[in-house]
Every structure is written in C-alpha cells, then in structure tokens.
Computed example of a mutant assay.
Amino acid sequence: MLRVKKFQSFFIIILLAFALTSCFSRYLISEKQVRRHYAKKDIRPEIQIIKNDTLSLCIASVGNDTLPMLLLIHGAPGSLWGYMNLMDDQDLQNHFHIVSVDRVGYGKSRLKMKKKRKYVTSIETQARALLPVFTLNHSDQKVIVLGRSYGAPIAAKMVSLVPEKVKELIMVSPVIDPDKEKFYWFSKWGRNSLVQLFLPGDFNTATAEKYSHSDELKKLLPVWQNLHVPTTVIQGGNDWIADPSNLDFARKNIKSKRSQYIFLNNAGHMITFTHLNMIKEMLLRSQLFKEKITAVDISNE
C-alpha cells in the first residue's frame, strides 16, 4: 500500500511538472528550435559571451555595431531568443545594432555572488549586470532600451543608473505595480523542491523572481520619480500576466515630462509579436527623422 502511495505521489509530481512546463512553453525556446529557425536564413545573430571575474553574460547581436544600439531585455521566464522576430527584421537591422541579452540566471548568463544564492532576484543586481553590454556598441549614439514584462522594471532601473547613455526607454506589458503581482493556482507548486527537479531551470528562476518581485518593485518606487528620459509604456487590455492597471501605475508614478502611454484594448501579453509593425514604426520613426535631417545640406544657407 505504501509503495502504491509513493507511486501516486510521484505521478502527481510528474503531472504537475508537465502542466507547469506546458503553461509557459511558449516563452522557453530550445537550442534545437533556434537552429531550425535559422537553418535557411541568410542572417543569423552573432552569439557572444561577456566575461569578467564575476559575470558571464550571453548576448545575441545583429546589425552593424556602428549603428545606434537597440537593447532588448526579456521577461520571466524567457530568453534572448524571445526577440527573434525583432532581430530578424531587415528594416531594423539596417538602422540598429540590435542586442538581445539573457538576463543573469537565464540561458548561459551567470553572476558569481560573494554569498551563495541559487537565484538572483534583485532588480538592481539584474540591472547592473547588464551595464557591460553598452561597451559593445561603437556608434557614439545613445541607446534605445526595450524591456518586456518582468524585464521592464529591470530596464527602468538600468536606465536610471546611466541616463546619459539612453535615448529612450520602452516598456511593453510591464509588471511594475508592487500591489498587482499576480499569482496562479500553479504558483505554489512551482516552489515545491520535488516538482522543481522536473522543471526547466529557467522556470525555477522565474518562480524565485515572482515570489520576491513585489518587494523588489517597492524598492524601485524612487526610480519612477526620477525617471526623466523619454519613456513609452505599452499595455494590453487582455493581458493575463501583467494586470492592465500597470499602465495606470505608470501614469501616476512616472514623472518624466517626455512620456507617452499606449493602451491596446484587445491585446494580450505578447505585444512585441502581435503588434510588431507598431513597435517597428515606433523604433524607426525617430531614427529615420534624424537621418533625414543629417542628410540635409545647410552649409550654403
């Protein structure tokens, strides 16, 4: 009888692990899927590892590094490959040095800590770990930073650390309101140590972030008050991960006079996929305008 109960418990654990993995499989892209995706493409992003004594940061880049940088920061769970559609876009490639990065704890990105911690849940630590990415660009132009979901507050914190290097901050489907953190029926099971044995490592990292996220967002409150770079916040009305009221939080707390807020009534969480053309137009508009002005010869006027 005891053996039967152990078998039942084991079966339930496997079933839960399978259910949890299925829920977020769209955000987890395997190396096999990446190879298949780029098998017949002429241009594939270049993979690079930034290393120092404490950091190992994996990035994928496409486009000439003398063009202005477009830095892409993923959510949780997620990876740098979650922005393949942006990296693959020829128009964007022609105008930007596109860099997508694995945040520490995801993919091959790691951070050595003085105190041994299994997961890096600090928004500030995550943000500071991304700063070396700026050295990859040789355009002498400011960077556009785009963060999605859990990557949005990390992007905002990073921008606050080096505002002089940033042209614009774009937050898509942001999870930034500490009072609106969503939990689901499966959230507590994701913390079960036995269940975690059968889950992808990135999923376990995302779970650790989720249970510390509200407290981390409270630490971020002063950042919004002092955010003065041009900022765009985009939110979908049918988003089941980021509560649509996150847009209201942004309106209330972001003090930048150069901010805009876009609410897409019927959009879900994955706006960078469902509204790619809108994102493209937004990114290209200021860059194309700058190139047009630069091309005008005013020397004889």
Score class of each variant (00 low, 15 high):
Arg191Tyr: 05
Asn253Gln: 05
Ser245Thr: 13
Lys252Ile: 05
Val159Leu: 08
Leu221Glu: 15
Leu194Gly: 00
Lys188Leu: 14
Arg258Gly: 02
Glu216His: 11
Pro178Gln: 10
Pro230Arg: 01
Phe249Ser: 02
Met171Glu: 01
Glu209Met: 09
Arg148Ser: 12
Met171Trp: 04
Lys188Trp: 14
Leu194Phe: 14
Gln225Cys: 01
Gln225Pro: 02
Val145Arg: 06
Gln225Ala: 14
Thr232Tyr: 03
Thr231Gly: 06
Asn253Glu: 11
Asn253Asp: 01
Thr232Asn: 02
Arg251Thr: 02
Asp202Ala: 15
Asn253Cys: 01
Leu227Lys: 05
Tyr150Phe: 15
Pro244Thr: 12
Ser193Val: 10
Lys180Asn: 12
Ala156Gln: 12
Ala206Gln: 08
Leu146Phe: 10
Thr207Pro: 00
Trp185Gly: 05
Leu194Ser: 09
Phe203Ser: 02
His228Glu: 08
Asn253Val: 02
Val195Asn: 06
Val172Glu: 14
Val223Trp: 11
His213Cys: 01
Gln141Leu: 09
Pro244Gln: 11
Pro200Leu: 14
Ser214His: 08
Thr205Ile: 02
Ser193His: 09
Ala156Glu: 13
Asn204Pro: 01
Gln196Met: 12
Pro174Thr: 06
Asp215Leu: 14
Ala156Trp: 11
Asn238Lys: 15
Val233Met: 07
Gln141Arg: 08
Lys219Phe: 04
Trp224His: 06
Gly190Trp: 08
Trp185Ser: 13
Met171Phe: 03
Gln141Pro: 01
Thr205His: 14
Gln196Glu: 03
Phe198Thr: 02
Lys165Ala: 10
